[in-house]
């Protein structure tokens, strides 16, 4: 475990020095994410001019939900996004060989090696917005609920990353996962809206096979009165199950990997 943490510290250090080589892009990206936050606030702000509730939540509750959306997005962009972008290319070019022979888990190495330093500043901003939304919430929030919310949000982030990997691992069999990856990015927008707007069979799918409602909406619901034990079991259970499936899928893919010819 310590070895992995030291390795991750090196990844972070290298990423910061690399990011500083492209300073203009570095600041552009920070500004880009701030604009994304502004657009989301504007979007829901306009909607709440015409309704008092959306998906059962009032505007203050949706600001907290949005804080979760921003933190989730920032963590994914900081920790995983660059790696998931490179992964299919490594398989296609046969570069995966270099990662398979290293004395650490290839799944860990390939999912964490490229830390996006520019997005890290957005993570700080996103956390600030989440804290702001929690502090301005008019009713008292129990400390236990907030702690559970943070753990559930962390679990949700791992869950959505495992879900994303399921769209990328087929690269071991098919030449390009570009189409699948595009489908993932379209689908994942469903988690950026309160889950209660989805009803019936669609809601059932979003809390099971395509578990996007569990990523942000379910963690947020524990702050507003949802039964914490049931939500925690659902989110943690789904994350564990999805990671187990992803890990087995990964192992299966690795067995089919034929280096540069794959």
């Amino acid at each position: 475990m310590v070895r992995y943490l030291r390795l991750y510290a090196y990844f972070v250090r290298f990423s910061f020095s690399r990011a500083m080589e492209f300073r203009v892009d570095f600041f552009f990206r920070i500004f880009m994410d701030c604009l994304f936050y502004a657009v989301q606030f504007a979007f829901f702000g306009v909607l709440y001019r015409h309704t008092t509730l959306l998906g059962g939540w009032n505007q203050e509750q949706v600001w907290v939900f949005l804080g979760g959306v921003f933190v989730t997005d920032a963590v994914i962009m900081t920790v995983f996004a660059n790696n998931t972008w490179w992964f299919p290319l490594f398989v296609n070019r046969g570069d995966l060989d270099y990662y398979l022979v290293r004395p650490v888990s290839s799944l860990f190495f390939l999912n964490t090696r490229d830390f996006a330093a520019n997005s890290f500043f957005n993570l700080v901003i996103a956390l600030g917005l989440l804290i702001w939304a929690l502090l301005r919430y008019p009713e008292p929030l129990a400390a236990g609920s907030v702690v559970l919310y943070l753990f559930l949000l962390g679990s949700g982030i791992l869950l959505v990353h495992a879900f994303h990997l399921c769209f990328l691992i087929p690269v071991f069999w098919i030449q390009s996962t570009r189409g699948l990856d595009e489908m993932y990015w379209v689908t994942q927008h469903l988690m950026e809206r309160p889950d209660r707007i989805y009803r019936g069979w669609l809601h059932r799918i979003l809390v099971s096979i395509v578990p996007l409602a569990l990523v942000i909406s379910y963690p947020t619901s524990v702050l507003f009165g949802a039964p914490p034990l049931r939500v925690a079991l659902h989110v943690f259970g789904a994350t564990a199950l999805f990671w187990l499936l992803t890990w087995r899928f990964w192992r299966w893919g690795i067995r089919n990997y034929a280096s540069a010819s794959s």
């Binding site: 309704t51 489908m183 379209v186 809206r193």
Partner: peptide, 21 residues
């Protein structure tokens, strides 16, 4: 798929907006 998912998301959002308002 992209069009279908996009339409589904919009349908659900506005269904909720009209229902709840």
């Amino acid at each position: 798929a992209g069009f279908g998912i996009q339409f589904l998301a919009i349908y659900c959002l506005w269904d909720a907006m009209f229902r709840e308002s």
